[in-house]
Write a protein that binds this DNA or RNA. Structure first.
Lengths: 329, 329
DNA sequence: TTGTAGGCGTTATCAA
DNA sequence: TTGATAACGCCTACAA
């Protein structure tokens, strides 16, 4: 292993003081053009990079972002967060930040992870996913004045931190309007249990689009646990019922896949639209609502760096989803 | 923010020197039982944790593991690495290690990422995934004496680093024997192009199982790019051909899903078995070969910590996959 | 068994 | 515009 290149190595080689090298890196405007170029050449030649550990000791900033990786649940929807993580890693890298992973099974465990991480690696901030009602995490971080952004609105809580989210209601409205345009009138909605922010948001988009079209939604909505099996049995019942729907807007690809199974063999074939554009949707040819994950990730990084730089502590971003049209509706 | 708790805070509060606190943490056996309990009580009370930055400056160890997160490709098989990442995060945490993410599009970019990371955050080691022939990464790391483990054998290269892998041949043999047991005789194999280690390995298992059963594999193997569309058209051709297979062992769930589409409507219905137990397989009811990812992750951590502690530089672990039986075969 | 001194590599302060 | 010096928090010698 080549002996370590430190700021001193560079300084000596360039014939300047270590402070000058540090300035070239952190405050280039303080250094004379000529000196700067000279020092930069040595830096490039030696492939010098400042040690994060030393830098952090002095500056207090780790350039680390903590992100939770969830245990693989259902596997269909969980995939969404994995794709988000990919995008976030790249967006963070562009801002000079690295992602550090931790796992936790619930809010309380996640808060313990914060304590642990903050006291040892001291990440500069966190990106939280899957916000929900009575979310204990935001309050804790706010209280400790730890910078963070959430992917997901602060459901039912005041707007006291930066967040990025995708307009779920706009997504289901998009899906509903497409089905209306195709001539459907009895368009059902299949979602997860009411009370969760995301679930209600997606239902409201369908509801609004139906009402805008002058249609009554009576009896056309069902709420079941977010699994393929529950989706299938609920869709079967809906299709079988009197005045059953001819098309179904689903709040997730898991439910939509259940509905996709339930519709086979029926005549005429009911339309089904899912949500999240997961690999499963692509694989079976399910029309679905897609979230702009790359944009979400970029916005998260932008808002978080904003907070780190002491700007705009409660800005937020709401992005529009779009429809990916395949065979099912 | 509560003012920072350092080793001095703890020392003062416990009425001992900082050295004693450090010893309680790092060499408890040097400290008298009574003193140790006393100091530990203060540590717990204050929630003290040693600063990684300071610790790393002294000890040179970051307790960080670098892991590449790949751009989401096909989405079906890429999911495997995401699940592995979940397991790895947890296994690493149990060993007091944290995962730091980076992304790279090819070997060269990944090596640049190593240089970058090693010079700034200096992770203690790396976990590499997706090893392949002429893999430039292992050689580079070996040369720089950077500790690492691979999930994947050193295909075609000498056994000069620790690795963990799943026996792909055993997996396809398992699948083939199941089909043989169900009475099939013309069992085809659908895999990705030959020459890649993983691809050949999985083909060999099918081949061996066929020969063991006294059956000739002539004309029963096809190799196409690893996508659903290629899988579908190849499977269609195979099923349509003279003496076409009545069952298909596939080297991935992507190919198997293609075959799953191709088989519908045929009489009798051909059997199809996939590989990797991805969410898509679960969703459509595909029988598939599952890799023990939690065990792989644990083994990776065990081998890597072994290297970090200066032990067993070339140990390796080959794990057995198992069959997840669903509807398709 | 406990305490003291020094240094890891960097950046902020201040002086030149 | 540049340079010397101190300090961040910890751990390893070494001394008591």
């Amino acid at each position: 292993m080549a002996s370590k290149v430190t700021i001193r190595t560079v300084a000596r080689r360039a014939g300047v003081s270590v402070q000058t090298v540090s300035n070239v890196l952190n405050s280039p405007h303080l250094v004379r053009q000529e000196t700067r170029a000279q020092v930069q050449a040595v830096i490039d030649e030696l492939g010098y990079r400042a040690s994060q550990a030393a830098r952090q000791m002095r500056s207090g900033r780790s350039r680390l972002i903590g992100v939770r990786i969830e245990p693989a649940r259902d596997g269909i929807n969980g995939n969404l967060l994995d794709r988000f993580l990919h995008e976030l890693t790249e967006a963070a890298a562009r801002a000079g930040l690295r992602i550090m992973l931790y796992s936790a099974v619930d809010d309380a465990a996640e808060i313990r992870a914060y304590e642990d991480l903050l006291a040892s690696y001291s990440p500069d901030g966190f990106v939280l996913t899957s916000t929900h009602h009575d979310d204990a995490r935001a309050g804790w971080l706010l209280d400790k004045r730890v910078p963070f952004v959430t992917f997901g609105r602060p459901w039912g809580a005041p707007d006291s931190h930066p967040w990025v989210d995708v307009d779920g209601a706009a997504g289901t409205a998009l899906a509903t309007r497409r089905l209306l345009g195709a001539g459907h009138r009895r368009i059902g909605f299949l979602g997860s249990p009411e009370g969760a922010g995301v679930a209600d948001d997606r239902r409201d988009g369908w509801l609004a689009a139906m009402r805008d079209a002058g249609l009554g939604p009576a009896g056309l909505a069902r709420h079941v646990p977010d699994t393929v099996a529950d989706g299938e049995s609920a869709a079967d019942e809906m299709f079988d019922g009197p005045d059953g729907p001819t098309a179904l807007v689903c709040a997730s690809d898991s439910l939509a896949l259940g509905a996709w199974h339930a519709r086979t063999g029926r005549e005429p074939l009911p339309a089904v639209i899912g949500f999240d554009d997961t690999p499963v949707a692509r694989a079976v040819g399910l029309t679905t609502v897609a979230q702009p994950l790359a944009e979400v990730a970029q916005a998260c990084v932008r808002l978080l760096t904003g907070v780190l730089d002491g700007r705009a502590p409660t800005e937020h971003v709401l992005l529009e989803p779009h429809l990916v049209v395949r065979d099912s509706g």
